[in-house]
Design a protein around this nucleic acid. Structure first.
Lengths: 188, 188
DNA sequence: ACGGTTGATGGCAGGAGCTGACATCGTCCC
DNA sequence: GGGACGATGTCAGCTCCTGCCATCAACCGT
């Protein structure tokens, strides 16, 4: 067997989430997280850029899924429909991880610094979506606006999903929210 | 005359922006900012919660203006039109301060931490707008979606205004972007 | 006029986040 | 068998930020 226990990164993520839930983000030190994972503070910072980033390792995967779904939309589909396809894809993924998502989100919502980080991750998703639309031939500012609108729909629907009853599916909530956005934009 | 020079807060803001422009946000220490303003680091942190906040003192004023304009929209106006009225109001205000806005934005765009802070300020604007709509009788999630859509329009238009030629007015860019968003939402 | 209160500031100690430089030591490859 | 490699540890140090107490002019009530 190896010199080190496997999956140091995953152990750090697990320890961090547990501690953030137990005593709060601000009341947890990086040294404590590393200690629980059997590592040192210095090693934590080799795996994660800072104390917040440890909660956001999944956003890269989410982005790939979203972009792939936008790319995979029918060639003639309207931009907003390509975005909707992306939302469906990430909705299905997150639905499978609902307990984890709730736990994680309770930590993020409770701390302003973490909400800041979450917002910039969403902004990154939006930018990636806009770029994907652009490659589909959608001009600016339509591409960016469609992407921003899609992320807004995600944000609203996700909030309702996390805080709402278990039988509401995220993808369904997103479809409803998108329909609502369309109505609002039309001047309803 | 008083024991202290007047407008300590304003001097700190001026010194901070100047230094952030000159050598960058990360390369500037709070001690340097305070020193240039004739104060100490400790006093800086009495006026601003952290090193980033010194660039965002205007957001409260912006929010008041936005909410007031939403409140002042005709009673029968559709949510999206009430939001548009708010965008017009802040557009006019910012138009008067374009040189300052460019300078400030160049600093923010160059630093991730500052972009995070900017995003949460915009999210706060969105939440305040949603609440104003709610008081007008707009139900959820329509209120939040209209607010998010409005802030998305602001975001896109602002980016084009800051980076574009001088003769393009922000309010005009926002009207164009809003029209584009409506087209996109309709499936164009 | 005098004394107490208030309010903005300074000084200092200290914790926590984060980084650079160097050491350690299994593993892998030739 | 030896050297390169890679993940981790150790340590020093800077900066951000906070708590606590001191200072001192302005103001206020008597």
């Amino acid at each position: 067997m190896g010199r080190w226990q496997p999956n140091a990164r995953g152990r750090l993520e697990q320890a961090a989430l547990d501690l953030y839930v137990e005593r709060g983000f601000a009341q947890t030190t990086v040294t404590e997280i590393a200690g629980r994972a059997g590592l040192t503070e210095r090693t934590f910072f080799r795996h994660f850029a800072d104390k917040r980033e440890v909660l956001f390792s999944g956003s890269a995967e989410l982005q790939e899924l979203l972009v792939a779904a936008v790319n995979g939309a029918p060639e003639g589909a309207a931009p907003i429909d390509a975005v909707a396809a992306g939302l469906d894809a990430i909705g299905d993924l997150m639905q499978e991880r609902r307990p984890y998502a709730r736990r994680r989100q309770s930590v993020i919502t409770a701390n302003t610094e973490l909400r800041e980080r979450e917002l910039i991750k969403l902004a990154t998703l939006s930018a990636a979506t806009a770029e994907a639309l652009h490659r589909r031939g959608v001009a600016e500012p339509a591409a960016s606006l469609a992407a921003e609108a899609g992320i807004a729909v995600f944000r609203i629907a996700f909030g309702r999903w996390v805080g709402g009853p278990d039988d509401k599916e995220l993808a369904q909530l997103m479809r409803e929210s998108l329909a609502e956005l369309k109505a609002v934009a039309a001047g309803a």
